[in-house]
Design a protein around this nucleic acid. Structure first.
Lengths: 168, 168
DNA sequence: CACAATACTTGCACTTTGCAAGTATATGTG
DNA sequence: CACATATACTTGCAAAGTGCAAGTATTGTG
């Protein structure tokens, strides 16, 4: 917990606030990758995320994809539509239950994925190069817990968060 | 018949890819805060960022604000306009050079800021509660270096990144 | 004083997003 | 077996956000 610093404000300094710092790194690192896949393949961010999911998980349905890359059903539907238009994915009705579509990556989809993943890997490597071995391990395990906690924070909503803050 | 062929991919697993993990935490944590300030005050994300900047830095001009919260001049101008409409900020022409506007937070702007910052602090506290003291220190120093490296990554663009990847 | 430079600001086209309503399929229920 | 209900998307459209060209106001320069 923090101490309130100057007279009248609650002492939240944007540049030192953990969520903003995480956002900044994520946003700055996402921009070059995003211009790459959007200029090169005409992919949207949702399209790229879905491509990455179906690259490692064949014949996924829309809800699985949404869960795996944190997209709502609308975005997933549109993203799959985009990938299908580009020839990077195909959707077939599911074998047993035809309400579920089975989405699979195509050969050219995988080629595109590999090119984007190459750049993604290079970016990650540059970031990791700035950290020591032990820092990487700490960051890895810390991020795992932060992922869990942020999911809970998201799930409970701001009303509950303010209540908790009032009764510590 | 098609086979899932993970043999041929570059092994970038979205859920283990550092930039995605940072993005996920940042996005999940930003959502409740965003719905709070947008429902309660009608603030946009840019509006909130600018409010946070002028809460700690009085009479800033638009470029300073943009630099402090990573917004382009258009977004800053519109955000300030929104804050002015809401009565959370005022802009006056600068004392010496009247091209520069001096943006200041109003009393009601500070009240709003304090309410949002309260929730922001509660969110950060929940995240930090998941980490040990030494993890917080490691995360803090690691993030500082990641901020620097991500700014460089953003600055050089994807062409340079791919060249580097080819010639290590 | 003409002209360029700076610091925003606005208008407008274009894109993205959120959500209501729609389609197709499956699963009870009387 | 008809019919209501539920599930899994999908589409249409309006609202919101974004990007950029052009505009305004002000200051520096030859």
């Amino acid at each position: 917990m923090k101490q309130a610093a100057p007279a009248s404000d609650d002492g939240l300094k944007l540049s030192a606030w953990l969520p903003y710092r995480l956002f900044l790194v994520a946003a700055q690192v996402a921009r070059p990758l995003e211009s790459f896949y959007s200029e090169t393949f005409g992919l949207s961010q949702a399209g790229w995320r879905i491509l990455a999911v179906i690259a490692e998980r064949d014949a996924a349905n829309a809800s699985e994809i949404g869960r795996a890359c944190a997209l709502d059903p609308f975005a997933v539907s549109r993203g799959i539509g985009q990938l299908a238009d580009l020839g990077f994915a195909v959707r077939r009705p599911g074998k047993t239950d035809r309400r579920f579509a089975a989405v699979s990556i195509t050969r050219s989809g995988r080629t595109a994925f590999n090119r984007i993943a190459g750049l993604g890997g290079a970016i990650e490597a540059r970031l990791l190069a700035r950290l020591s071995e032990s820092e990487r391990n700490t960051l890895d395990s810390a991020l795992t817990r932060l992922e869990g906690e942020s999911a809970r924070i998201d799930a409970v909503g701001w009303r509950a968060l303010l209540d908790d803050a009032g009764t510590p």
